[in-house]
Design a protein around this nucleic acid. Structure first.
Lengths: 212, 212
DNA sequence: TGCTATGAATAACA
DNA sequence: TGTTATTCATAGCA
């Protein structure tokens, strides 16, 4: 697509979009309505980085900052030609995903057969090596009886490889990166909430996303 | 841990850490070395959001912005009690992961057996429902012959469920969120690069992360 | 990598 | 949600 640039400009809330950060009118006191207290708000205030207790304020912050985070990710992706995926579980509500998470994960899975070929190198793999379905996408019923054992082992290893691979690849750099920047700055994992979250979503099916 | 707050302050480059944004000395011309041109730099300049061509500048930007992105993610995580995971493939170099990606993915996998229990509800699952290994973590060899078929079907569905689930859950909200904020603002997926990336990492094993 | 000046993100309000 | 006044992030240099 050659006109990518043009459409990009028309769609984004970026630079060219808004002519300029709106000039600060408050200081100029355009109308003489009220002489004292020229400041209409306190403006952005410094906040402490700890869990926000007020439900409402937390939701607003989550919404705004999540938007900001995704925007940053998008910019980074474009500026540096990087692939970025973000998964976000809001506290008890929704799951927000940004970018190529599915793609990235699928990437691991697409790569996996190479790893597993030693376990399951039957004629199935031989027949397909292009964009066709991977051997593990094959219906169970179509696997010949004599290959069953190997097939199953491969499938078993597949699951295991998935996130093991992520650890290995991102591996050390990751943890260290994370640690360097913000050692304790991660909310503790709450399996219970996350699981309930999954369960709820599962019941609702696709569901619409109504604000927040 | 009750002293979390304290240790947090000592570890982080945040507010309390640095007393204040260093006061702007340039304007004051502390030393009379050079009267004209009080500005020592041009300061931050607005840039267009498109791929940076100069290799070096791109790498610097990637490093700085990735740091910023992770920091933002960490803050969001703490402020709002959210679980956040980020996967980043730099162009041809490393893979950077932030936060609970492994955790999040494992969450999907841990949830999956519930979905699959209809396929494979043998006595294996009955024996373990706590923190023990899930049925699909069981060694292939230990599965009784008569349960093999069900076991394998379950395992097959497991793989399929993994990213299908991610799509469904994050699903529509995701794509729309992404689209609303920055429709075209994602670098196109480059399978080739990513695959090579995986391959290289695989060869290197864990490897140290030397700068960038 | 560290610094400075400026562009952006966003806390508080409406 | 939209606006404003600040704090925060970071482009350009050294």
């Amino acid at each position: 697509m050659e006109n990518g640039e043009a459409s990009l400009i028309t769609c984004l809330p970026f630079k060219e979009q808004k002519p300029m950060q709106k000039p600060n009118l408050a200081v100029k006191q355009r109308n003489g309505r009220k002489q004292q207290n020229p400041k209409t708000t306190k403006g952005r205030q410094r906040i402490e980085i700890k869990e926000i207790q007020e439900e409402n304020r937390r939701q607003v912050t989550f919404s705004k900052r999540r938007t900001g985070l995704f925007k940053k990710a998008a910019e980074l992706s474009v500026l540096c030609g990087a692939q970025i995926g973000i998964i976000t579980f809001s506290r008890c509500e929704r799951i927000y995903v940004f970018g190529n998470v599915n793609t990235l994960i699928e990437s691991y899975l697409r790569k996996t057969p190479v790893m597993l070929r030693s376990y399951y190198g039957g004629d199935v793999a031989a027949g397909v090596d292009g964009d066709g379905p991977m051997w593990w996408e094959r219906a169970v019923e179509s696997v010949p009886e004599e290959e069953m054992d190997e097939y199953m082992k491969g499938l078993n290893g597949l699951r295991e490889n998935l996130w093991t691979r992520i650890c290995e690849m991102g591996g050390d750099p990751t943890v260290q990166m994370n640690a360097q920047i913000c050692p304790d700055l991660m909310a503790p994992v709450n399996w219970k909430l996350m699981d309930e979250n999954l369960a709820v979503r599962n019941d609702q099916g696709q569901a619409g996303y109504d604000g927040y």
